[in-house]
Design a protein around this nucleic acid. Structure first.
Length: 223
DNA sequence: CCAGACGTTGTT
DNA sequence: GTCTGG
DNA sequence: CCAGACGTTGTT
DNA sequence: GTCTGG
């Protein structure tokens, strides 16, 4: 699955990697080495040009009565996302690319869990396939939320965990964000495990366990 | 028909 | 154990 | 995802 | 809102 990640690239680097229309972007991006559910994440969307917006991580369906449901909607399974009531509408109309530099995955080792950091060999930012929603609370407040889609583990991830986030390369990002794309078969076909030869993973220390810790030490290899 | 859930993960 | 918060 | 709280009353 | 279960 995907429950914690890193976003440290500059806006310029992100814009280059995701072909963003920079003039339309009005967003503060401070690096985070420990982005957790419930926090603000940056995602590319198609909205009269390709831009970057902020969303609270944890999708709140538009029909929800209580925003707390978002804490249980941080991931959506690629296998079922097109049909599940909570995600169906977003899958059809509100797709996004959540921007990251890498992600953490915890490996069960007996009674304990060992965190690993996973990233691209190229060192470039990566994009998670995501969905977003706009929610209005009973008292009139609005909330923009999103979720990250997961798929089965590739060969690199399998020793660590049986699920991983869907990572889209540049071409797939274009297809995923295309508002004209309506064929659910084609869209679902993009949600495949990423090429393991273009990724690497290593063990990190327990600092990352607490979401309160947010420093470059989080991604330092465990000695 | 109405009521109640709507999710993923991991563990048992 | 289960929910909330980060 | 993991960490941390989990409750009410009455008094300061 | 929409689907499932009773």
């Amino acid at each position: 699955m995907c429950g914690r990640f890193v976003r440290k690239a500059t806006l310029e680097e992100i814009a280059e990697a995701f072909d963003l229309d920079v003039p339309g972007i009005d967003l503060e991006l401070t690096p985070s080495y420990n982005v957790a559910p419930g926090q603000r994440v940056a995602a590319a969307v198609c909205d009269r040009g390709r831009t970057l917006k902020q969303f609270k991580w944890g999708l709140v369906p538009f029909w929800a009565k209580d925003e707390k449901i978002g804490y249980r909607m941080i991931n959506a399974r690629a296998e079922t996302v097109a049909e599940k009531p909570g995600f169906k509408r977003a899958f059809a109309k509100r797709r996004c690319i959540v921007v990251a530099d890498g992600f953490y995955e915890w490996q069960q080792a007996g009674k304990t869990k060992v965190p690993h950091y996973v990233h691209l060999k190229s060192g470039k930012p990566l994009g998670f396939a995501g969905l977003y929603e706009h929610w209005r609370s009973p008292d009139g407040r609005t909330l923009d939320t999103c979720t990250i889609i997961t798929t089965s583990a590739n060969a690199l991830m399998r020793p660590i965990h049986d699920r991983m986030p869907v990572i889209l390369d540049r071409e797939a990002c274009g297809a995923w964000l295309d508002p004209e794309a309506t064929d659910p078969q084609i869209l679902a076909g993009l949600l495949a495990p990423f090429d393991p030869d273009r990724m690497e993973a290593y063990q990190v220390g327990p600092l990352v366990n607490s979401p309160r810790n947010d420093s470059p030490e989080c991604i330092e290899p465990r000695p």
